[in-house]
């Protein structure tokens, strides 16, 4: 198995923390929207958090790195009381997107805008659907809006990830870079 360098581990840790914090910073803004529609907040902010999981996966291109980052994010969220209504289910809802990112990175070789958009939207939808199934139990059109907001958030997250990806690649040595 390919070993990760200290630089990659530091970048992964950075992405875990930043992903969690950015969600906390963005949430009050997205909650204005979700409060207006009277659906639970969270799905509209998840893309910003997952953008850093995507970048972290590219900084440490080993299968399981995004899953590990998602799992660590969930533990951090539980420890810091950031998990909200999800409680211990946060372990599942934070880890699943990481697993999807890992599987997508394995299946797709190109690292262009469609890749980042597709993976970000897919992982956001999975996270939102799992949160709904485990915690919120939204149904019908409210569930549709919940998923649509997650997809929109995934689009923004994917764009951010693609923009940051190029910069992260520049600071990595050639042997640690992923294919473009």
């Amino acid at each position: 198995m390919k070993r990760l360098t200290t630089r990659q581990l530091v970048l992964m840790a950075f992405c875990v923390v930043l992903g969690l914090l950015i969600k906390r910073i963005i949430s009050p803004v997205t909650n204005v929207l979700t409060d207006f529609f009277r659906i639970p907040g969270g799905s509209a902010a998840v893309g910003f958090s997952l953008a850093f999981l995507l970048i972290g996966r590219e900084a440490a291109p080993v299968f399981g790195s995004a899953t590990l980052m998602g799992f660590l994010q969930s533990l951090l969220a539980l420890a810091l009381g950031f998990s909200g209504y999800q409680g211990v289910f946060a372990v599942l809802t934070y880890t699943l997107p990481g697993l999807i990112i890992d599987c997508s990175a394995l299946l797709m070789k190109r690292r262009d805008l469609p890749y980042f958009l597709c993976v970000s939207v897919l992982s956001c939808l999975a996270s939102a659907a799992l949160s709904d199934a485990l915690v919120f139990h939204l149904a019908g059109i409210a569930l549709l809006l919940w998923l649509l907001l997650a997809a929109c958030s995934g689009v923004v997250g994917g764009l951010c990830a693609q923009l940051l990806y190029a910069r992260v690649q520049k600071i990595l040595p050639a042997e640690e870079r992923t294919r473009t």
Binding site: F36, F37, R38, I39, I141, A142, L144, L145, L148, L149, A151, C152, V155
Partner: peptide, 16 residues
Amino acid sequence: VCLLLVITVGVGLYIR
């Protein structure tokens, strides 16, 4: 992306 935004806004306004 535009289509996604339009659908989201439409569904949101319908719910509201």
